[in-house]
């Protein structure tokens, strides 16, 4: 299980390859990558703030739950902070399980919890000012399905 909270970019292909290369009992790997979305071409940059210490604790707790619940062979979370440009990768998760249903479910679970339980805050920097991204009610509601 690996967690990296970092400012540096990451190589999606290299991370996926390295994750899969370390497996011995899995038949399924699911990866998800989140990119900085530019709504309507007005986004100059996105700044991501986090709470060092709590970020790692919160994500590890979520990963431990996912590994136990879906009997994952391995899991990976990479999440960036700092200043990012439109279309930059922000984060990725990878899960490995014997069968695909567990790998997909665990990846969705990790994403749902990262959205509203990992202490990150996004700020959109546009041509006409900066604005903190508001949490969405549906992100909180998504947790109830687990």
């Amino acid at each position: 299980m690996r967690l990296s909270v970092q400012t540096d970019p990451f190589d999606l292909g290299a991370e996926s390859h390295a994750f899969a290369a370390g497996l011995s009992t899995s038949g399924a790997v699911v990866t998800f990558t989140g990119l900085v979305r530019d709504n309507g071409g007005r986004l100059a940059a996105m700044e991501i703030e986090h709470y060092p210490g709590m970020t790692e604790r919160a994500i590890r707790a979520i990963m431990d739950q996912a590994v136990a619940r879906w009997s994952l062979e391995d899991a990976l979370v990479i999440h960036r902070h700092g200043r990012l440009s439109p279309q930059d990768p922000i984060m990725m998760v990878a899960t490995a399980a014997r069968h695909r249903a567990d790998a997909f479910a665990a990846a969705e679970f990790l994403m749902d919890y990262l959205k509203s339980r990992a202490p990150f805050w996004k700020k959109e920097i546009g041509a006409d000012g900066a604005e903190w991204v508001a949490a969405k009610d549906e992100d909180e509601a998504a947790l109830t399905r687990w």
């Binding site: 990262l114 959205k115 202490p119 990150f120």
Partner: peptide, 29 residues
């Protein structure tokens, strides 16, 4: 609010707590 880096409620006691953090709802992922 988080107390010693764990999410908490506003009526939670502060006895023994070393670090309190206040922030808006999180927007990770």
């Amino acid at each position: 609010v988080a107390l010693d880096q764990e999410l908490a409620d506003f009526d939670a006691p502060l006895a023994g707590v070393r670090e309190v953090a206040f922030f808006p709802p999180m927007t990770g992922g």
